[in-house]
């Protein structure tokens, strides 16, 4: 068993209206040090595979097919033995 944690972010070239709004809210609250905010998504997947390579392959296939939209999003993931 493996546990995969997948982080999804909007591509750098894509404006993030949600991130901009959170940035303004933080500034309003007095957090002057914050210069940019990007809001993303996070998945935890429990993968029933014996081999690490197989599990990686599975996670990549799931991301490419459903979990992310490559037109607007990038992703990275970590795999830990569960």
């Amino acid at each position: 068993m493996y546990k995969a944690t997948v982080n999804v972010t909007l591509k750098k070239s894509v404006l993030d209206p949600q991130g901009k709004t959170v940035l303004h809210a933080l500034e309003t609250l007095g957090f002057q040090g914050v210069k940019d905010v990007r809001v993303g998504k996070y998945f935890e997947l429990a993968i029933d595979e014996e081999k690490r390579e197989k599990a990686e392959e599975q996670v990549r296939a799931m991301c490419d097919k459903l979990l992310i939209n490559p037109v607007i999003e990038d992703y990275s993931f970590k795999l830990n033995e569960a």
């Binding site: 909007l10 894509v14 404006l15 209206p17 949600q18 709004t21 939209n69 037109v71 607007i72």
Partner: peptide, 17 residues
């Protein structure tokens, strides 16, 4: 249609949220 690839591009949240 965008997600299925019939048409190019994608939808984001409205700029006003």
């Amino acid at each position: 249609l965008l997600e299925a690839g019939f048409l190019p591009g994608a939808m984001l949240r409205n700029k006003t949220l």
